[in-house]
């Protein structure tokens, strides 16, 4: 990896990726505190440990590309460019949230960045990604749709239906499998007869490769290669990112199904210190840079929390708004149900 330490030390983008991962980590750590205080409710799925997947892939996308994610998507949303305040306000159920407080943690949406959720049905987002890519292909647009899902999705019929359809129709989809080895609390080896997930994708004639999901630069490099191939007409590609979540499935999960030493051994590969130490060793980053980066992120998180806390709650009279599209003459209503 060559790094250019000039021009604001952006170099190959690794510093920016480090910053993104730290933003996501600190954001989610603050979410834990807010959850404990009761300011955030519902299911809260944290991706602590998995930040390199969201950041590495997103870094390889253009602003015009689309992202379809899962219910563990805070990181994808932040990496994609949603403001931290809008995401935090969503988690606190405020109108200023990216989904007006209608979605919550599992349903983050953002039209300007083409962020299509936030899907809480495992594998439920794959068909949407196929359709978004179909629309691009039918319109001759060179856009890519990146679709994130976990290893659990591989057991769903929709996974197989969608890989087949995307390959059959040669659609511009980047399938991004975040393999953290557990479908909620059940290990991959207990649910899959074939645990080599890339092999499954390859059986649909989709170029597939595995990448170290704890190494953000490796993820970005693989994703960039796939995106370039897709954009030049190479059809769908499949990335299996081998990763691990350091925390439980959700805030309700007592995490009885994993051994502590397994968790500790994966923590040795934490993507954030892995990259920061490399950048320090490469001379791209100084210790002082790192401190100021952390301080800036802390300030951003503080601001996001303040923004969310000072947000407004939707009037109950608007409960039925957006069940259907409000008619032009009835911009406040849309009560057709």
């Amino acid at each position: 990896m060559t790094a250019v330490a000039s021009g604001g030390r952006v170099g190959d983008g690794s510093v920016a990726m480090l910053r993104q991962m730290i933003r996501i980590r600190r954001f989610e750590e603050r979410c834990v505190e807010l959850y404990s205080r009761g300011d955030i409710r519902g299911f809260l799925h944290l991706a602590i440990g998995e930040e390199a997947c969201a950041v590495g892939v997103t870094e390889a996308l253009d602003t015009d590309d689309a992202v379809v994610a899962t219910y563990r998507e805070h990181g994808h949303a932040l990496a994609r460019g949603l403001s931290m305040g809008a995401v935090m306000a969503e988690l606190e159920g405020k109108v200023e949230g990216c989904s007006r407080g209608r979605g919550g943690s599992m349903h983050l949406f953002d039209a300007p960045t083409r962020f299509y959720g936030g899907n809480a049905i495992v594998a439920g987002g794959l068909p949407l990604a196929v359709g978004l890519a179909l629309a691009d292909r039918m319109n001759g647009r060179e856009r890519v749709t990146a679709c994130f899902f976990g290893d659990g999705a591989v057991a769903e019929g929709e996974f197989h239906e969608c890989l087949n359809l995307a390959s059959l129709w040669h659609l511009p989809v980047l399938f991004c499998c975040e393999n953290n080895l557990y479908a909620m609390g059940t290990a991959l080896r207990l649910t899959e007869s074939e645990t080599d997930l890339s092999l499954k994708a390859a059986s649909y004639r989709i170029p597939s490769w595995e990448v170290d999901g704890m190494d953000v630069r490796a993820v970005r490099e693989a994703a960039a290669r796939a995106v370039e191939a897709i954009r030049s007409g190479g059809g769908p590609h499949f990335l299996e990112m081998r990763t691990y979540r350091f925390r439980a499935h959700s805030m309700y999960d007592p995490d009885r199904y994993r051994q502590k030493d397994e968790i500790e051994s994966w923590k040795q590969h934490d993507p954030i210190p892995t990259l920061s130490e490399a950048l320090l060793a490469e001379g791209v980053l100084t210790a002082a840079d790192l401190v100021s980066m952390e301080e800036a992120v802390d300030a951003e998180v503080d601001d996001a929390v303040s923004f969310a806390e000072s947000g407004t709650i939707e009037p109950v009279e608007d409960l039925e708004r957006f069940v259907t599209t409000p008619a032009p003459a009835d911009a406040d209503g849309g009560r057709r149900s």
């Binding site: 689309a66 299509y116 439920g124 794959l126 068909p127 949407l128 990604a129 196929v130 359709g131 978004l132 890519a133 179909l134 629309a135 691009d136 039918m138 319109n139 019929g157 929709e158 239906e161 969608c162 087949n164 359809l165 059959l168």
Partner: peptide, 21 residues
């Protein structure tokens, strides 16, 4: 013509609608 994949092609219809079709 689609494969016998109701969930995929109905969902693809949703995605295509989101994509402007």
């Amino acid at each position: 013509d689609t494969p016998l994949s109701e969930s995929a092609f109905v969902g693809a219809g949703i995605g295509a609608a989101l994509g402007g079709m």
